[in-house]
Amino acid sequence: MKETKRQKLDALEMKCLGSMGDVSRLNRIRNEVVRMRVGVIYELAARADMNVLRGFCSVEKLENGHLLREVTNARDNGRCARGRPRCRWMDGRKKALGDRRINVREAIDLTGNRNSWRAIVTPYCYFTTDVAAIGDSAYEC
Rank of each mutant, 00 (worst) to 15 (best):
K5V: 09
Q7I: 05
Q7F: 10
K8A: 09
D10S: 07
L12V: 00
K15E: 14
S19I: 15
S19F: 15
M20T: 03
D22C: 09
D22S: 12
V23K: 06
V23T: 09
R25Q: 09
N27S: 12
N31M: 07
E32I: 04
V33A: 15
V33I: 15
R35L: 03
R37L: 10
V38Q: 07
Y42D: 04
E43F: 11
L44C: 08
A45L: 06
R47Y: 11
R47S: 06
M50R: 01
N51L: 12
L53E: 01
L53M: 01
E60W: 10
K61S: 02
L62G: 00
E63M: 08
N64R: 11
N64A: 15
G65M: 08
G65K: 13
V71E: 12
T72H: 12
R75W: 09
N77M: 08
A81E: 14
G83V: 02
R84A: 07
C87K: 13
W89M: 05
D91A: 04
D91N: 07
K94A: 02
K94H: 05
K95Y: 10
G98D: 09
D99P: 00
D99Y: 12
R100S: 01
N103K: 06
R105K: 15
R105Y: 14
D109G: 03
T111E: 07
R114P: 00
S116I: 12
W117M: 01
W117I: 00
A119I: 02
I120K: 03
I120P: 00
T122G: 00
P123W: 04
P123M: 05
P123N: 04
Y126C: 02
T129K: 14
T129I: 06
A132W: 11
A133F: 14
I134F: 15
D136F: 05
E140V: 13
C141D: 14
C141W: 15
C141H: 14
